[in-house]
Write a protein that binds this DNA or RNA. Sequence first.
DNA 1: CTGTATCCTCTAAGATACTG
DNA 2: CAGTATCTTAGAGGATACAG
Lengths: 138, 138
Amino acid sequence: MTLTAEQSRERAQHRYNASLELCPARQLLEAISSKWVTLVMLALEESPQRHSELRRRIPGVSQKMLTSTLRTLERDGLIDREVTASVPVRTDYELTALGRSLLPVIFGMKEWAEDNMDTVATSRQHHDRTHAGVAPKQ
Amino acid sequence: MTLTAEQSRERAQHRYNASLELCPARQLLEAISSKWVTLVMLALEESPQRHSELRRRIPGVSQKMLTSTLRTLERDGLIDREVTASVPVRTDYELTALGRSLLPVIFGMKEWAEDNMDTVATSRQHHDRTHAGVAPKQ
DNA sequence: CTGTATCCTCTAAGATACTG
DNA sequence: CAGTATCTTAGAGGATACAG
């Protein structure tokens, strides 16, 4: 039998999910879109920092999320972790060369955002006002 | 009374959540990190497309997610939506000037990703192998 | 100080069904 | 063709307590 459009779409979905996850750009997006990664990257821009320093420099981050973010960045090879076995323990984090190579990309986004997010905000307000009745979303 | 470090951290959290959400870069990140936005933006790069064309061009997207993504992009002023009231209805989407101005940023990410995500992947594998016992995560 | 281990909540996103 | 309306689920992220 032949497939309906809906059926072939389903197959496409499964085929595509795999390739989507393999797409480098998608992977990067997922890697950096976690809530704290860019903040940590930027906090490490100038010099290595200790866990406690990072916590102070990034207000609002819980130590769970900070640790988890740092672990992920370390796993991705974007930062290095150095533990000094003193009492109490001291841990320093610093950007790797790979991590530093990502900074320009982050700055590129930052720049576009700073130049254009007010336009986006205006557009949102206008859209919400003119489409008041339908699908307010939030 | 004076605040404990933990308490002042809590206050910082609330103070900061507001400013975090106002941060332009964060907003942009949230806007484009939705699963389908970059795919839609890239699909519209060369020419306007109809809803059904986009669905074909982006395998695996459900019509719900496509519609929702398109609505968000429209609200943000990144794409325009033009409805032709024929039977059946015809709808075309195209990038706005603002939307096109974002493309270089997306390409910048894409380029870094293509150049470096294999290094990241290798780092992940190495990390997972050497840290087999502890926190395999996934 | 630098973490783990739980528990809990909230939302993005998928599945499915229906409409002008 | 181009949507809207529900229901459900997986995972991110927060709160809290404990440990080397």
